[in-house]
Design a protein around this nucleic acid. Structure first.
Lengths: 167, 167
DNA sequence: CCAACCTACGTGACACGTCATCTATTCCGC
DNA sequence: GCGGAATAGATGACGTGTCACGTAGGTTGG
């Protein structure tokens, strides 16, 4: 029922959008502070450690790890350097491919993620999901994944419905 | 129907949560790149300019502006310095209160926000709202505002159900 | 009236992200 | 094999965000 010609949002949409923006800022901030206080990990640290600890193999290459995280490789590279400095992950040379590197989970890393995960998951569940019906969860999931897909379509093609930026 | 004792998320909750996390990273990134390409503004720049251009008065004090944005004052202070450097905002001394400062919208700032807002709003509408029913929008809004409220409750009290961090 | 306190705002140090670019390898066509 | 393109990953510069703290100006109880 929205007017497809106007660029503006309806009042209801404004309300939803501003709430989303606010949540988008405040929820990660809260999770980050809790994580930091409980275990000294940052939210990005946590994500990396989750991937490493859930992996089938005991060590991962950088690029697949970046893909699994949905991160740019350079971001991961920067972050791994910091995490290595704090002893959470290790690096090994890759014999098969001289360019490559293995990322490993150190004992300290495994200890950190083991300790940090339960309270983190509990907070997420309490804040987001505990009072949510299955129907509403389905609506949220459908909405979120749908938007995500459109975002990726819009970002990926490099030339979509954009004003034609020839370069 | 979730098990309130377990810290873990159900599979459906996991799906929703991971999609939310991914969206949370990728949507602002896309909006930022669009805004940057269209008008040279960053997303935070945009938010500041929206507040300034929508304000009743022609100039705002720093603290109320920070509150309206939901930002920490020091963050706003840093950001205003950068925006001032790029000519988007100006600062004036406050006569009433020697500690205070006024933030003003420069002509360049007004021009930038006027030019940037329509395409930005259109992208938001296309990505999030165009194919969303009124019922679903209501579900989303209720969910988002509910979570936001719980987040603020959890963040604000400084001493809530946390492990009691005495000093 | 003044010392203690509070408030408004700024700053410095550091973590995080992105972009552009670099180096070292591998791959691939000839 | 060999020369150029592609790939793996690292790096430097810069904008952004947080935390801890500093400073200057107001406020208030004795």
């Amino acid at each position: 029922m929205t007017d497809r010609e106007s660029p503006w949002l309806s009042d209801d949409q404004q309300t939803a959008w501003r709430a989303w923006l606010a949540l988008n800022g405040e929820l990660p901030a809260l999770l980050h502070r809790r994580l930091q206080a409980d275990s000294g990990l940052s939210l990005p640290d946590f994500e990396v450690l989750v991937q490493l600890s859930e992996a089938d193999e005991p060590r991962l290459r950088v690029s697949p790890l970046a893909a699994a995280l949905g991160w740019e490789r350079s971001r991961l590279s920067h972050h791994l350097k910091r995490m290595e400095g704090r002893g959470l992950v290790g690096r090994e040379e890759c014999e098969d491919d001289g360019r490559g590197a293995w990322v490993t989970l150190t004992d300290a890393g495994r200890r950190a993620i083991t300790q940090a995960a339960p309270p983190h998951a509990r907070v997420v569940r309490e804040l987001l999901f505990d009072d949510l019906s299955a129907d509403d969860l389905a609506v949220i999931t459908r909405f979120t994944t749908g938007v995500l897909e459109r975002v990726r379509d819009a970002a990926g093609p490099a030339s979509a419905s954009r004003p034609a930026r020839p370069a």
